[in-house]
Computed example of a mutant assay.
Amino acid sequence: MTTADAEPTRPRPEFPLRPEFAPDLFAGAGEDYARYRDGYPDAMLDEIVGVAGATGDGVLLDLACGTGQVAIPMARRFRTVWAVDQEPDMIKVGAAEAARAGVEIRWTCSSAERLSITDGDLELITVANAFHRLDRRAVARSARGWLRPGGALVIMGSGRIPGEPLPDWESVVRTAIRDWHQSNPPATPTSDQSPPDQRKVSHEDLLVEEGYRVSHRSFVVARERTLDEVIGHVYSRSNSTRRALGPNAADFEADLRQRLLARHPDGRYPEDLGYFYSVAHPITGAA
């Protein structure tokens, strides 16, 4: 039986098989997302290309692409890059970012689940910090057909390290968001609304179930944010976009700044940021 590569020191988070997120979760957040969301180290992207065995001569499809955190740097590594996201604001801002970077990308507004692609057209498919928001089984099955022989599906992300305590300032941020929502409930849900009893499974285990051979790697990068960078990153999160915070978002920001400076008066906010990627190759003959 084929299994995902083991990393016993890093527990892998599990997610519902069919999450239910609002399709306009990040409406209006494109500029904040482009400016403050963490990109991916060049060495990591080069390593992914190598592990995937990609030549760069084929087509890379970046699903749920956001504002191009993967598509834009990968456009320097692939002949053709196709970036797809279901939110128009993300596509608009991403296209502007790509133009500023001087790279050509095909941008399409669509959900990953409804995308129509000719089988065998793609060399590499990437999904960054978004696979948990998709119908993962449906996407994994579609990807098997879309990929040309030797192609791969890559799931990647960055964020908190599973099992590790939060930085003290991140706890402050989460408390501030929770307090704000209690007194100013968002007009629409900002989190997964799927049934609580739905089966949960890690990305790697699901891909193995769907007939992929999976290699996985995770690592940690120490970094430091400024106060403005912390605030900007908060605005890029689905539960604290300016839209989700409502018309008095400026009051939230003032309160959060005060709380953060009380914890770190120097305005510097260190953290250990986790990165991961899983490269999944379809197994020939698997159902």
Rank of each mutant, 00 (worst) to 15 (best):
M1F: 01
T2P: 10
T2S: 01
T2V: 13
A4M: 01
A4T: 00
D5H: 01
E7Q: 14
P8D: 06
T9P: 03
R10M: 03
R10N: 01
R10D: 00
R12E: 11
P13V: 05
P16N: 10
R18S: 06
R18K: 15
P19S: 09
E20L: 11
P23N: 11
P23K: 06
F26M: 13
F26I: 12
A27F: 06
E31L: 02
R35L: 12
R35A: 15
R35D: 14
P41V: 00
D42G: 07
D42I: 05
A43Q: 15
M44D: 03
E47T: 07
I48L: 11
V51N: 11
A54W: 14
T55K: 10
D57C: 07
D57R: 13
D57E: 15
G58Y: 00
L61I: 01
G66L: 02
Q69E: 13
V70P: 02
V70E: 02
A71T: 01
A71P: 03
A71R: 00
I72W: 02
R77Y: 03
T80P: 05
A83D: 03
Q86V: 09
E87Q: 15
P88E: 07
I91M: 01
K92P: 01
V93H: 09
R100Y: 05
G102S: 05
E104S: 13
I105A: 02
R106P: 04
C109M: 07
S110Y: 04
E113L: 04
S116V: 14
D119C: 11
D119L: 03
N129C: 11
A130M: 05
F131H: 11
H132N: 09
R137H: 06
A138I: 01
A140N: 10
S142A: 12
G145K: 13
G145R: 15
R148W: 08
R148S: 13
R148G: 14
V154T: 09
G157W: 00
E164V: 12
D168A: 15
V173M: 10
A176K: 13
I177L: 10
D179V: 12
P186I: 07
D192P: 04
Q193D: 14
P196M: 04
P196N: 12
Q198L: 05
R199I: 10
K200Y: 02
K200M: 09
S202D: 00
S202P: 00
H203R: 00
E204I: 00
L207E: 00
E210H: 10
G211A: 04
Y212N: 04
R223V: 02
E229W: 07
V234T: 14
Y235H: 13
Y235E: 05
S236K: 05
R237I: 07
N239C: 08
L245Q: 09
G246E: 10
A249E: 13
A250W: 07
D251Q: 13
F252M: 10
E253K: 07
E253G: 09
A254W: 08
D255C: 04
D255W: 07
D255S: 14
L256D: 10
R259E: 03
L260W: 11
P270C: 05
P270N: 04
E271K: 01
D272N: 14
D272R: 14
G274Q: 01
F276S: 06
Y277G: 14
I283M: 12
G285D: 12
